[in-house]
Every structure is written in C-alpha cells, then in structure tokens.
C-alpha cells in the first residue's frame, strides 16, 4: 500500500517538476537570448571543418570567430584552398587577390641508396628519437626516413619510399602538420602557383667536400644556380628559391642544365615529357581505399 502511494506521488512530483523547470528554462532562453554574429556561422560553414590547426587557431570555429571579428586574415586556411577563401571573402566583403594553395615540400632527395655513412639504427623507430643519436647517417641535415611526418599526416599524403619521405600532392592539403613534427625542419610550405614546382631538394649547409662524403645527390653549394637565375639566392651553403617571383613564364632550363648534382627537382604533377617517357612502362593501377562499413551503407567519416 505504502509503495503504491510513493509510486503515485513520485510520478506526480517528477512530472510537475519537469514541467515547471522546462517552463522556467524556456522563459530564460528567450529573456537572456544573445545575438550571435551570423557571419561566424557562415564563415564556419565555408571552412572545411577539418580542425587541423594549420591556421594557428585551435579549431575551425575559433578561426571563424577571428575572421568574423576582423582579427584574422581570410587566406590562412590551407585545406580550404581558393574556393574557401573566395567564399569567406564574399561573406566578409573583402577583395580577394590571387591566392595559391600552400603545399609541403621536402628539402631532401636522398633515398637510402644515395645516403652514405649509414649505421644500423635499432632504437625507437621515430625520427625524433633517431635525431638525438649521432651517427645514424652521415648527413646531419637530411631526411631520416623513419616517418614521423607520415604518422603526423592525417590525409595519408606522405609515403616513405626507400628511406625517404615523398609527398603525394593529390592528397596533400597543406595543413603543416608534417612541417611541425619534422625534427630536422626540412619540410617547408611552398605556394603552388603551378601544379609543378621547382624545389631545392637539399638543405645541407656544409662545404662541398663534406656533402660529397655523406651524400651522392646533395647540393655542394657551387652557386651555379644563383648565377643563372635571379630567383635563386644562397642561404648559408644551400640555395633558396624566391617563390614570390616564381611565375609560369620563368624558364629553369638553364639552371637545371648547370646544376652538377640532383639537387633541383620538380615536384607536383608530372610534365607531359615525363609522362611520355614512362608511356610504355607498366604502371600498376592505383587502388583506392573503399570506405564502406559492414554495419550499414551510411557515409563513413571516421
């Protein structure tokens, strides 16, 4: 009997309480309504929502707030690319100049066969750990090839090929994650004005003889490129390309023919010439991952 009383009264009390609290909170929701800048929501919708942190803000929402408040530049989003900047420019009423997607480039072209003075390394298989140990390989500037960048890449755009990190530009979105983790700081972000860009694939600062002792392809600092093209200048003992003046009209044939090493390479899309060269060869077809779960057919974004 007493249980029934408690049951009935408990049900009564709880339902009345729910109604009362719902009413109070509903009233408060209207009375304390805060106007939110509608720009924040629309800028956030224009952003890719990857929350990669490449812009320097914690997430896309925070960057959207900074953009809407006029504190941040609209060109900071790497993954969003030109279309995203255009949309943000339309929302913010800003004139958009020509923008280029920034992509990661690796300033090293020496795979395991090209590197000299290699020592067997059996420690923790990360570049960060190997970088602490002297003598893993002769070159103290180049790629260690243990794949910290590949691990950091959430877009699976970096492969380690024969001990050298190689970027797949079909997948790279320019989020800087790899450039941040590389303990040797050999990854930089370059504006891709074309789909094929020339890169100095070496960053060894030592004198020519010392470079030759540790690498078969490294830059010996002969300065031939700086003499043949105004785009090149020396920083320490390695050349650097001035990408601000890198336009499709600039011809690099002269520079490339003068470079005695293999330190200047094109990255990005292969040229028609390269494609013609490999025409007869059998290239395995690319296998794309099939993101279908066995649970149901919904779009999987894990």
């Amino acid at each position: 009997m007493l249980t029934t009383i408690t049951l009935i009264l408990a049900a009564l009390v709880l339902s009345l309480l729910a109604v009362a609290m719902g009413w109070v909170l509903g009233w408060a929701n209207k009375a304390f309504y805060v106007e939110v800048d509608p720009k924040v929501a629309s800028v956030n919708a224009a952003l890719p929502g990857a929350n990669c942190g490449g812009c320097g803000y914690v997430g896309c929402m925070e960057y959207a707030e900074a953009v809407a408040a006029g504190e941040a530049d609209i060109t900071l989003c790497g993954p969003g690319g030109a279309s995203c900047v255009e949309q943000m420019g339309a929302i913010m009423g800003k004139e958009v100049g020509e923008t280029f997607p920034y992509r990661a480039v690796i300033h090293c072209a020496a795979n395991r066969d090209a590197r000299l003075q290699l020592m067997p390394y059996t420690g923790e298989p990360t570049c960060a750990a190997a970088n602490l140990v002297a003598g893993v390989q002769g070159c103290t500037y180049g790629c260690l090839g243990l794949g910290d960048c590949a691990t950091a890449c959430t877009y699976a755009a970096i492969d380690i090929k024969n001990g050298l990190a190689v970027i797949n530009y079909d997948k790279c979105v320019g989020c800087k994650a790899c450039a941040v983790v590389c303990p040797r700081n050999i990854i930089t972000m370059v504006p891709f004005r074309q789909e094929r860009m020339l890169v100095v694939a070496c960053c060894n600062q030592d004198a020519g003889n010392d470079v030759k002792a540790v690498c078969k392809v490294g830059c010996i600092g002969c300065k031939a490129c700086t003499r043949n093209s105004p785009l090149f200048h020396m920083e320490g003992n390695a050349p650097v390309i001035d990408y601000d003046h890198y336009t499709p009209e600039v011809s690099f044939d002269m520079v490339l023919s003068k470079c005695p090493m293999e330190s200047l390479i094109f990255v990005g899309k292969p040229s028609p010439k390269d494609l013609a060269k490999t025409e007869g060869e059998h290239v395995p077809e690319r296998i794309e991952a099939d993101f279908k779960t066995t649970v149901d057919e919904t779009e999987w974004r894990g």
């Binding site: 709880l14 309480l17 729910a18 609290m21 909170l25 408060a28 929701n29 304390f32 805060v34």
Partner: peptide, 20 residues
C-alpha cells in the same frame, strides 16, 4: 534525481544569465 535535476536546471539558468 531531484537534486541532480535542480542542480542541472539552475546551472543551465546561470549559464544563460552569465552569457547574457
């Protein structure tokens, strides 16, 4: 259950108030 209900509702209320 009533205490949790009361606390949650009053926190919600305070949050709206502080936000405003």
């Amino acid at each position: 259950i009533i205490y949790i209900f009361v606390i949650a509702s009053s926190v919600q209320f305070v949050e709206m108030y502080v936000r405003k």
